[in-house]
Design a binder for these strands. Structure first.
Lengths: 216, 216, 216, 216
DNA sequence: AATGAATGAGCTTTCATTCAT
DNA sequence: TATGAATGAAAGCTCATTCAT
């Protein structure tokens, strides 16, 4: 009687539908903290606020949780990639500036930068994950960057660098920044202000690529 | 006469002395391939050519193997650091060129680049490892680089960048290169020639830092 | 109607509540028969009718089972001690008669006399057990006996013995009786009638303590 | 050359011949402290001052060590029993006094009282030990005591007690005394003077058995 | 949709025993 | 006689997964 009003069901439903995501959130936190193998399904369940058995109503296995996690993290990338593509026509330097700023802002969030870290850690055991990530994220993102750099070179705003290799200079410093902070707790004296890092990175990078001196 | 030739000493004693390193080598291969948790001590033993129980003659626990592995990888760093220090007086650009070339050559070897990857993966479970690595390797190496850059700035060969942040631009691309190759199998069409990458990296980096245009 | 009869409640829940005690019972039997170290958790599980893993739902470790066993055996002692205390006012000889009869009746049951035997055997490895038993059982029981004897001496019904030492003459013969039977299978020709032993023990003991001859 | 004088060999030999006993001594100490199962052969070897492998030159197995230990402890009993027998003709009370004094003096030594404790602990796993001890020690000693008491009864110095049961009153208090001290560390305020206990025990026991009041 | 008791394979670790030297 | 490296069978414990309720 009490809980059967038509209006009330939505709340239930809403929860029920949100469950898988709650599980994924919980799993992500724990995978970040302890890695995949050292995280127990029971702990994921507890953190998600349901019972061990219930997790298996939503996911076939622990591995399936990891996979879903990676898959979920991939979705926004596709969107961003599409968005980027649209704004591509402009000056490659501006696009790179935008991309770096965008990404650097995100990797500050441990819940986002943790996914690649998880994949790095588990790629041996679950090659499918690495493959998925490579195909859906890296190939897209790196190719986009590559094209951008190639365009710059062709237009004469960048020196004649090899775009395939140059992408490492775009991406690497951000990776280093994220890992130094996330894994080793090295955040520099000034704290965690990502803007200063982005500025520094873009300064060095774009000057390194530019034909003419960039004014900072 | 009494002891035969030095070379002929009991094989097993000779082996016994080499055993710990053999175990570490085996462990490293497997940790790289499957991660720490998914590697069984028995597999390490088998790969090292001895029995499960024998591993425990040399190491107290599986975790101790991991720690020894990291510790062993740290030793050469101290040596290199000392060496670097001696050559420091020269042009900072040359020293950076040397360092990058040296390191990039090493990270091509999966057995060397795997250690940081292991630490990245296991830092959650074994914070001591991360701490050790940070103190023994990162703090040393990054500080050295920082000093180098600062010197360059002071001498007027580098633009006025923040040395603390600039180190990410030195180290990051190499990290990216190693991970793209090691984890995702992205080695570029041209294969695994590290020299081309080093060249490209130094070109972009040093131009990015330089006051005047570097001639490539 | 809704929940069926109380009796019909899910069997397994009912069992679940009894499980820890079933495990302890099984463990006791096996510890008696083979000692703590030589008993495998799997055997305990099998005897208790569940799987190895299930034992760990109820106890943290094998040692915890032993401890719980001792703890469980201690509970009734406290009750008895309280009971004894109430009847203390009477003639010390009567109280001693009661105590000896009570205890001797119990040590006939191997599941009761086994606990001290286990503690004797394992005190080296688990000093906490010995300490617990000493504090909860021995200190209580021996002190009670001591007081009893002292009272007897003061009232002039017992000769002036040292109560601290005399307790050994109360307790020791029962201990000997239990061990001879339990460990060495020495039960006397007439079998296991404990009453004859109790009679004999009390006869000798009380005559040994008495100021005047006891009539048997 | 150095170590080959004829005179020197004896010392060697002597050691070699003493080795098994040294092993037994070491084993006894450790078995007392940790029990049979929890004692490692390697520890026995270390304490006896030789290598793990060497132990197996003298004993076939760990169990064989335990058995030899018990066997060794039995030898003196036979001698004592014979001695006792010779002095038997005297007053049973005197013989009992002698026996109790003798035994009580010995059970103060943990290396002697430990043997029965070991047997109590391990009788489940090694029934042969219990059987051996029963036959060689208990049956002998208890029978002797029994005979003694029976004689006393027949001669009219003891009341008509059942000798089979009365032996428990002779032996039990000593057992209790040894266990309270050895296992639970209960040694009474006055320390470890065994004479006071023997005196107390004999006082109570002999008065308990006597037809006429004993003067203490 | 949800629970949590139960399972059992699998892992790390220990240690009696063997054997080449 | 003596060593100690090596073995391999257990044993304790964990945890992903299942299933009766």
């Amino acid at each position: 009687m009490t809980k059967e009003t038509g209006k009330d069901r939505p709340k239930w439903r809403r929860r029920a539908e949100a469950r898988p995501d709650e599980v994924l959130d919980a799993a992500l936190d724990l995978f970040i903290a302890h890695g995949f193998a050292a995280t127990r399904v029971e702990d994921i369940a507890a953190r998600a606020g349901l019972s061990k058995g219930a997790v298996y109503l939503y996911f076939d296995s622990k591995e399936a949780i990891l996979e879903a996690l990676v898959r979920r993290s991939i979705v926004p990338v596709a969107k961003n990639a599409a968005e980027m593509a649209r704004s591509a026509p402009g000056d490659p330097r501006d696009v790179i500036r935008m991309m770096v700023t965008l990404v650097a802002g995100r990797i500050g969030d441990p819940r986002i930068s943790a996914i690649p870290r998880l994949i790095i850690a588990e790629s041996g055991n679950f090659p499918r994950l690495a493959k998925m990530y490579r195909e859906e994220v890296l190939d897209r993102a790196l190719t986009a960057l590559e094209t951008l750099i190639r365009t710059g070179v062709e237009r004469g705003v960048f020196r004649p660098v090899d775009p395939r290799l140059a992408v490492r200079n775009v991406v690497g410093p951000m990776l280093a920044h994220a890992l130094l902070a996330g894994v080793f707790g090295i955040t520099e004296g000034d704290g965690a202000d990502p803007r200063r890092f982005v500025e520094s990175h873009l300064d060095i990078l774009l000057n390194g690529l530019a034909v003419e001196r960039e004014e900072t």
